[in-house]
Amino acid sequence: MNIFRLFGDLAHLASIFILLHKVQTSRSCRGISFKTQALYVAVFMTRYLDLFLGTWVSFYNTLMKLFFIGSSCYILYLIRFQFRTTYDPNLDTFRVEYLLVPSFILGLIFNYEFTLTEVMWSFSIFLEAVAIFPQLFILQRTGEAEAITTHYIAALGIYRGLYIPNWIYRYYSEGSVDPIAVVAGIVQTGLYADFFYVYFTKVLQGQRFELPA
């Protein structure tokens, strides 16, 4: 564990709390992509299969994994049931098969071992890299977003961004490299570039999140 990974994980936790806070206080999931949230459930379920295979990394690791699975399922429940009337499926129209199918094929090609758990792990890494697309698509279509929704997306971007110095640190301190995670992580962080540009130049200056026409 190093400071970059710890703060990355904390940013990931923060993103979930920000999202829950937005939904609970506004009693609305307007502007939130159910599809992105469903993809995160798929990501956590396929990546954390090792939970059920008795592989033990640490208490921290297991606790976080259980939290990510539990909270992502709870968010789906909130959108689907508790606040379903505030969810607009007509805005959330990104085709998830364009993300699922290529991620699965990449998982079959690039993995550390051709076993169920390793292929699923690779699949989850590739899927996570692109899972934000339906959410960014809503942003693109509406052209604007509530500040709190943008804080949520920013926290997610910071989480993946911080994993990059973590990998550099681990390369020098442990000599370990995880090429699949590194390549997917760099792509994932890159996808936030446009978003971050608007976020830093507008939202953090107190202006509304509005995409240039």
């Binding site: 690791n61 994994k65 550390y112 071992e113 792990w121 973590n166 995880d178």
Partner: peptide
């Protein structure tokens, strides 16, 4: 060398 297995990152 084979990368980290078990995967210790989240």
């Amino acid at each position: 060398e084979k990368p980290v297995t078990p995967h210790d990152e989240l």
